[in-house]
Amino acid sequence: MAEQEEFTDINGNPIQFSCQDFSPFCREFTVSSSKLSLLRVLMFTCTVWLLAYTGFYLTQNTAVLSAAIMVTLLGMLLHIHFVKVDHETLLIVGSLGVQLSSAYASGRESTTFIEMSRIKDIVINEAIHMQRIIYYLCILLKDHTEPDGVSSVVPLFQSSKPRLNCLVQVYRSCQEIIGQTP
């Protein structure tokens, strides 16, 4: 809630980062990205409609226009339901586990929980993403067949993609909690 520092995501859009301390062993980090902007919705609608009118002009078929309405509506629905994430939360409870949840613009929430016994570590990693090299935070899961191995990696804050200064804060306080649990 109270954060003096300004955070942005990797594309330079401002994001809100807040950290709630419930107890020394339990902390919640929330990263909220900016709301769906009206301008972008208008741009999308205009593009679809311009294309539809060109199609209509060329073919003189009204089905093109009805298709355009369907595309706009469905596209918007799918976008707010499956793509646009309003905020992502990481709740870490020492000795119990980590809960990741993301709330979509439509209000849908998806939550996963990873118990502490499966977590090997939380680290900041580098990856090549869309012609750039970015830092991201991820959870390493233990491999049960190998004692030192890592079976898979769960990336955190996947849709908001905060920059390194934000990741470092989350990382440090996660390490603090993981470090306290034996």
Binding site: M1, A2, E3, S18, C19, Q20, D21, F22, Q169, R172, S173, Q175, E176, I178, G179
Partner: peptide, 21 residues
């Protein structure tokens, strides 16, 4: 050293992480 590092960061960052509930 992972642990001591964590503690060091803890000291350094405590002020920054004091967040209101």
């Amino acid at each position: 050293s992972k642990y001591t590092d964590a503690v060091r960061h803890d000291v350094a960052d405590r002020r920054r992480f004091k967040c209101k509930k």
